[in-house]
Structure formats: structure tokens, C-alpha cells
């Protein structure tokens, strides 16, 4: 019988620690599928974040490095500069990339480091239990905005693609979502672009992925997908930014 669907070779066969309906599992798999398709597993070095994906290296069957919270792109810079022939990517959440690591994000992009960045935006700090993220929507309730994010006090959601799109050294920016099968396929295509850019030496590429977090949003997995589509994309329009 012909095999038409299988686990990617780069993805280990272990139980998931992610919650039901979480987007991380999908993106972990997409990353592995692309690495297999491009046949770059043996030259891949991933930088794992602090956040829910801190143990991404338990799932991924290639070399991985830890980074302090927010410093993934600095670590990736160090790896890529001394090993320019390797494929180096970071995988980061919104708190990591857009709050504590904002300086690293802006300056790694501005140096045009030839790395790929996978940015999971789920509008909340997941691992620490659901605090306000820089990308939390106005009026969205979190443990640290119990009455909802108040724009007058906490500001508006930080839009990373828009922020970085003004930088001359950035090669590629795209925002996608995980709210449907079609959206997942588009996400895979964007990630592949970002990975290929690095292999072709084009420079800094980042894909922002709007991703569901049913546990911290207090919604069912199905409601969460709807919320990504109906609420998040209003604030974070999908598409190519650079």
C-alpha cells in the first residue's frame, strides 16, 4: 500500500505537553515538514525560547540551543556568524520576541542577520499562566488585566510586522494565521519562503503566526479558532509586509 501521510523525520514520536487546541503543535510540525522537504536537518540549528515552546528541543530531532528570555535572536546571531553555512532559526512567542526581547528583535532585523524567525503570536503569556502580552487585544482579559486591557493605561497591541517593515535590512515579513486548514497551508508556504531566503542568503526573514491559546483565553479550541479569525486578524491584518 502506498504511504501518503507520515510523521516528518525531524519530528520525534513523543507525547505532546501542549494543551488541547494549542497552535504550537501545528507549527512544530510545519517546521519539521519543511526541514525534511529541504533536506537540511543535518545542518539545522534551532534556538528555542523561554515560554511554552521552551522544550521544543524535546520534539525536534536536530541540534537546538536554549536562550535566555528574549535573547533568542542574539544567540542565533552568534551561531550564524560563526557558522554561516548552517541553517539557523529562532522560534519565539509574543512575550519573548515583542516585550523582553524587543531590542534584540529590532536590532537583529536591522543588522539583516541571515536567519529565519518563527514568531507565534497568541496574544498572551501562556507558560506563566495567562498574563497580558504586548500583543494582547484591547479589552482582552488576562490575569494581569482582569478588567480587560485598557489602551489608556496599557497601550495598544504591538504590531511587529508593521514595526519591522520600515527597516531597510529586512528581507521578508509575512503574517499568517492557524484558524483553518487553508490558513495552515498558507502558513507553511510563508515559513518555507523564510527558510529558503536564508538558504539563498537573502537575509532576515520573519513569519508572524496568529495562533490559538484556548487555555489562557478561556475558550474552547473551536471558539479559539473563530476568535483568531474574527478578532485577532482585525488588529493584526494578514499578508505580506515586506
Amino acid at each position: 500500500m502506498k504511504k501518503i501521510f507520515a510523521r516528518p523525520m525531524s519530528l520525534r514520536d513523543i507525547d505532546t505537553h501542549y494543551c488541547a487546541g494549542c497552535g504550537h503543535g501545528i507549527v512544530h510540525r510545519l517546521v519539521c515538514e519543511i526541514i525534511d522537504e529541504l533536506d537540511i536537518r543535518e545542518k539545522t540549528i534551532a534556538v528555542c525560547p523561554v515560554g511554552c515552546a521552551v522544550i521544543a528541543y524535546d520534539y525536534w530531532d536536530f541540534d537546538c540551543c536554549e536562550a535566555a528570555h528574549g535573547r533568542a535572536m542574539a544567540v542565533a546571531t552568534g551561531i550564524k556568524r560563526v557558522q554561516p553555512d548552517k541553517f539557523v532559526f529562532t522560534y519565539q512567542g509574543d512575550g519573548d520576541l515583542a516585550a523582553i526581547g524587543t531590542a534584540e528583535t529590532v536590532h537583529t532585523a536591522n543588522r539583516g542577520e541571515n536567519i529565519s524567525v518563527v514568531f507565534i503570536n497568541n496574544a498572551v503569556y501562556g507558560m506563566t499562566g495567562g498574563q497580558m502580552a504586548p500583543t494582547t487585544l484591547v479589552s482582552q482579559k488576562t490575569t494581569t488585566t482582569p478588567l480587560g486591557r485598557n489602551a489608556a493605561r496599557e497601550g495598544h497591541p504591538l504590531r511587529v510586522c508593521e514595526l519591522l517593515s520600515g527597516l531597510a535590512s529586512v528581507a521578508y515579513l509575512e503574517r499568517t494565521a492557524l484558524d483553518s486548514s487553508g490558513a495552515v497551508i498558507k502558513t507553511k508556504k510563508a515559513l518555507k519562503n523564510a527558510f529558503l531566503n536564508q538558504l539563498q542568503g537573502k537575509g532576515f526573514s520573519l513569519v508572524e503566526i496568529l495562533s490559538p491559546c484556548p487555555t489562557c483565553w478561556g475558550k474552547s479550541p473551536e471558539e479559539s479558532l473563530r476568535w483568531v479569525k474574527e478578532e485577532m486578524t482585525k488588529v493584526f491584518p494578514l499578508g505580506r509586509y515586506k
Binding site: 534556538v47 540551543c65 528574549g70 535573547r71 542574539a74 552568534g78 551561531i79 550564524k80 531590542a103 534584540e104
Partner: peptide, 15 residues
């Protein structure tokens, strides 16, 4: 920043 510098070292040393 110094924060970034030392983390860059981490990446290069890990290499």
C-alpha cells in the same frame, strides 16, 4: 546592549 552581547557569545560558544 550588553544583554545581547553576552547572548551572542552564548550562540558562538555553543557552536
Amino acid at each position: 546592549s550588553e544583554l545581547a552581547a553576552i547572548s551572542m557569545l552564548m550562540g558562538a560558544s555553543a557552536s
